[in-house]
């Protein structure tokens, strides 16, 4: 079973391709990093897979089913810049939103769901902040609250868009530990990531993207000049190779 099975995904804005014929299969119960230069279409890939932007796609299976059947089991954590941090919601309100996909129209979260949301907040170590407005937290704390929301959603597939941007080292460490725990529980986590030197340590599988799929596989195979050069077009790797040789 694959967490994501994508066949020939193409996204175009007016005349230019943001993504061009990307076919990829990502395994379940793993921590997957999507890397590539700026403008490579990393975030676009996540959004297209979720059907948030118009895309052409030959075939898409999510957790071995059609997207419509598994929507409520897929959680998306947006980029920090996509959120209005002055919005009048408290931390516990945000986590409770994780219950919304399961609730029908007109239904309110039950007592049990509220208690479950608080448990999820506890798991990310943020229960002391339940009453705080979301914008009063640090970047790392905000990211943990959004992870708690994904937990409250009981998501099996988590898609995180640049979760480590603008947060401190301690929070980053805490979040990666948490993601590892989630993987051990059998969940799949896909992370858009731009920091190459931590990629090897963090992920089991890397997906290297630059409008097209350059390569996918274990980090030790992907983080080599052979693959990084065509993706990034940097002479940097060339020089390092010469220096080593």
């Amino acid at each position: 079973m694959y967490a994501l099975d994508v066949d020939r995904l193409t996204v175009s804005y007016f005349d230019t391709h943001a993504l061009d014929g990307v076919s990829v299969r990502l395994p379940v119960a793993s921590l997957i990093g999507i890397i590539g230069p700026n403008g490579a279409g990393k975030s676009t890939f996540l959004k297209a897979v979720l059907g948030l932007i118009p895309a052409r796609i030959e075939q898409l299976r999510v957790l071995d089913q059609s997207l419509e059947d598994v929507r409520s089991r897929v959680a998306y954590v947006p980029q920090r810049s996509a959120i209005d941090w002055d919005f009048p919601v408290r931390v516990q309100d945000v986590v409770l939103m994780g219950c919304y996909p399961k609730l029908g129209l007109f239904k309110r979260p039950s007592k049990a769901q509220k208690a479950f949301a608080m448990d999820c907040l506890e798991r990310v170590g943020m229960s002391d902040h339940a009453e705080r407005q979301i914008g009063e937290l640090s970047g790392g704390q905000q990211q943990r609250v959004f992870l708690a929301r994904a937990l409250a959603q009981e998501a099996e597939l988590l898609l995180l868009d640049e979760p480590f941007v603008g947060i401190d080292v301690a929070s980053e460490q805490m979040i990666i530990e948490l993601l590892r725990t989630l993987r051990a529980e059998g969940r799949t986590i896909v992370v858009v990531h731009h920091d190459l030197h931590k990629a090897e340590d963090y992920f089991d599988t890397l997906m290297l993207l630059n409008k097209q799929l350059i390569a996918v596989g274990p980090p030790s195979d992907i983080l080599t000049p052979e693959w990084l050069e065509p993706a990034y077009g940097l002479p940097l790797f060339e020089r390092r190779k010469e220096g080593q040789g």
């Binding site: 929507r71 897929v74 959680a75 209005d84 919601v89 996909p101 239904k107």
Partner: peptide
């Protein structure tokens, strides 16, 4: 209320869950 709240705060998540 619930739909207005989430689509105002995080429209991407709202869309993502359908």
């Amino acid at each position: 209320y619930k739909e207005l709240l989430i689509s105002s705060f995080d429209p991407t998540m709202a869309q993502a869950y359908g």
